[in-house]
Design a protein around this nucleic acid. Structure first.
Lengths: 341, 341
DNA sequence: CTGAAAGCGCTTACAG
DNA sequence: CTGAAAGCGCTTACAG
């Protein structure tokens, strides 16, 4: 068992020796540049790499290049199922681009986002994905760092200082609320974050207004199961109960469902629910959640590619959402027909 | 906005210059060794570090030391909520120990576990956490790599070639099944993985046997929502329906709940459910899941500490589970009394 | 207690 | 198309 107490790492020098070339040529082959290499030489090098099982030392490469094949990701809480699913997609996209993801939870210790970014930079990350709200000052600092950075799932409008990508929260929310209005429900509440700029709340209001309906109740709650549960309790106990509620996240909706069940309310018969995100869990609640799905894989792909290409200019890149119709809205997905208005 | 197009990185040389010492001394101060440094000098250096906002280049450090402050983690699928929660805990524990986590999903592309380990090694990780099943050969290879490695949440018995840590799956399962037997249910089914060695299935059988009850139905299903859903459908449609089922994971249990709801079965009245893991989601199903919780934070802490200390010898380190009593088993948690036998 | 210097394993201008 | 050599920013024996 102690055969290889220290399996002598094979370095580029070993490869060079075995293939009878200089170490530079090995680099040229492995990096496909910056100099061309004769085909025969190339083959010989590749063969040596294979024989020796050589893998370039990433630290050396990073030191030399000034940047590692690593992308730093800051996320508020990776346990959140939406983020967990996004992270997974980003991981997939990363490998495809020869990168790896260094994930940091910003909820973890007493450390500012900017500080965490600096930590990541010290690790030579070649790009930054931020799934967390940053103040304008913070964005400015990050933008001045000289590392491609990208906000994801954070609506920035046109005023963002960093490139950003994500769905059109407003249109997506509208999609959900329009659907519910299509069921004939006229009293639709909103449950979601308190951020002044939350586009989902706007989309909800848009839909109601355009349908000539009064604005429903708006309950602000943290983006968590517990947030949904508390909000749901408040709604269930209120004098005037909405006929439907649009939740800004599936996680919140799952909490709502629990609260409504506890209160003896039947979904969708007593109160309908539609939500946002399209996480896997939403398909396994009963009733299953009708939800506006975000194209997680596409966004992840685009994010990594963009970072690899150098990020570019500020501005919000939009991805389309898709309404996943299940039962919590009052539809019977086993029927072919859409709900009658 | 283009003030710092490239904010000239400050290096150790800058710190040395500003504090009027050699670069070696800066290292001694920052690493607290290997040489002692006079208090005044030390203060001066620290002050310079502060003033310059200096952060050591991790790549250079890793190259020089031969190991990075990074721990590699291989997990089958980080979307799985149990793993997502474990990963989050590991991240917390990592920062506390000055490390960061490099997470790799083993489901992601066509690449063997050993290959992924080598990739991680090329990145100079200083330790490896494996949350995936490895064959004996694979374990042997990993063990011979000269990097501290640790299996987590994978029962290895005494034959493991790598150090491992996790709960006592068998005793935990027994805990759950004993509880359900205490409710008077005599026909208890099992739903879980098909691995020959799954200790939870053993624990289930132990409990039944020791209570003098016949072995119930055993349904093998993937560890996923979908796996639970299919298993649940099979159980609901069977001629003889068990009175209770023990699910090897909360994720499976959530699938079961959906299937039972679809079949018009009431939980726990028609069929009781208990499960394993104690993920957050289990508290928000209705009925809420009675489940055997794993001490995720403690395990994560122990894992990181162990890796930082050098891993050590094979053997399975056990952590205690805790039965979280909610309603899916038939208990009414609002009552103080435990269920009568 | 402090410093000059070699070395970690790459990349890449520079020269041929 | 190929190679000798400097340099990336650290750590750490070695010498004082």
């Amino acid at each position: 068992m102690d055969e290889h107490l220290m399996p002598r790492k094979v370095t580029r020098a070993d490869v060079a020796r075995l293939s009878g070339v200089s170490t530079a040529v090995v680099s040229y082959v492995l990096n496909d540049g910056p100099k061309p290499v004769a085909k025969v030489t190339r083959e010989r090098v590749l063969e040596a790499v294979r024989v020796l099982g050589y893998r370039p030392n990433a630290a050396a490469r990073a030191l030399s290049r000034g940047t590692a094949d690593t992308i730093g990701m800051i996320v508020v809480d990776s346990r959140n199922p939406f983020f967990a699913q996004l992270l997974h997609a980003l991981d997939r996209a990363s490998v495809r681009n020869g990168r790896s993801l260094l994930i940091v939870n910003s909820d973890r210790e007493r450390q500012s986002a900017v500080d965490q970014v600096h930590d990541l930079l010290a690790r030579q990350v070649g790009g930054l994905i931020l799934a967390d709200v940053l103040t304008d000052t913070e964005q400015e600092i990050v933008a001045s760092l000289g590392v491609p950075a990208l906000l994801i799932n954070q609506y920035t409008g046109s005023g963002g200082l960093l490139p950003a990508m994500g769905v059109d929260f407003r249109a997506g929310a509208r999609q959900a609320v329009d659907h519910v209005i299509g069921h004939g429900y006229r009293d639709v509440a909103f449950v979601g974050g308190a951020l002044a700029i939350d586009q989902r709340e706007r989309g909800w209001a848009d839909a109601l207004r355009d349908a000539g309906l009064p604005l429903g109740q708006s309950v602000h709650a943290p983006f968590s199961y517990e947030g949904g549960l508390s909000a749901g309790r408040a709604i269930a106990e209120a004098d005037r109960r909405p006929r439907a509620v649009f939740a800004a996240s599936d996680q919140i909706a799952i909490g709502l469902l629990a609260a409504f069940a506890d209160a003896g309310l039947r979904v969708p018969d007593d109160i309908a629910v539609v939500s946002f995100d399209g996480i896997a869990e939403a398909a396994y609640t009963r009733p299953a959640l009708t939800t506006v799905a975000q194209p997680i894989a596409e966004m992840a792909d685009a994010a990594i590619r963009r970072l690899v290409d150098g990020a570019g200019d500020p501005g919000y890149t939009t991805f389309p959402t898709e309404l996943l119709i299940r039962r919590s809205c009052g539809c019977d997905p086993s029927m072919d027909a859409p709900p009658t208005t």
